[in-house]
């Protein structure tokens, strides 16, 4: 149990996917203008990441390992994630039109989000068992959401101040992201597996 808690903390803070490992920078800057939308994106990513880590773990250990095809994992995982996102989108469309509208374009965008693929591969590299990988996925997704909401909150405030002309728009967003990333480096070494 303590081990699982450590995994969550590691994924959320110490090894934050966005701010320390630099995965998923595209949505980090693309959908972080408003706290609402970044929360929506975070929800979608959490859902997909947890599902994807479950399925990829099963596929890896029950299909690729027995046939000694471990080298194919990247290709196989991309396949899995892409189809999974499609399936999830269809299910959401059918079951909850409201959620579908809230998540909107974010859901299909996650198909090509490197954070999801990275998570699947990290699960294998770290030799996690099924429960551990799911917990790690959930933590990583929460960390992703945290980073997104943090930067969105800052960008909402940045809208209201006079930024020097050369820094306006993406410039100041990237600088803010950099400073946030440096702040997260403070967690380094707090937890080791």
């Amino acid at each position: 149990m303590g081990n699982l808690l450590a995994i969550i903390l590691l994924a959320v803070l110490v090894d934050n996917f966005v701010l320390i490992r630099f995965f998923g920078i595209c949505p980090f800057l693309g959908v972080s203008r408003k706290v609402d939308t970044s929360l929506g994106m975070g929800m979608a990513v959490t859902f997909v990441m947890t599902m994807a880590s479950l399925v990829t773990w099963l596929i890896y250990h029950f299909l690729l390992v027995p046939f000694e095809l471990e080298y194919l994992r990247t290709v196989a995982f991309i396949l899995v994630i892409a189809s999974l996102v499609q399936l999830v989108e269809m299910v959401v469309q059918k079951v909850s039109p409201a959620l579908n509208r809230a998540l909107g374009i974010f859901l299909p965008l996650i198909t090509t989000n490197c954070a999801v693929l990275a998570l699947a591969i990290l699960n294998i590299q770290n030799d996690f068992n099924l429960l551990q990988s799911i917990v790690y996925a959930f933590g990583a997704a929460i960390g992703f959401t945290l980073a997104l909401v943090l930067i969105a909150g800052m960008r909402e405030r940045l809208e209201l101040v006079t930024v020097p002309k050369p820094f306006r728009g993406s410039g100041i967003a990237l600088i803010t992201a950099g400073i946030l990333s440096i702040a997260f480096m403070g967690f380094r070494g707090m937890i080791a597996l």
């Binding site: 596929i59 046939f67 194919l72």
Partner: peptide
């Protein structure tokens, strides 16, 4: 390998 991926 081919079979597995194609199957998947």
């Amino acid at each position: 390998a081919t079979l597995t991926l194609a199957g998947l």
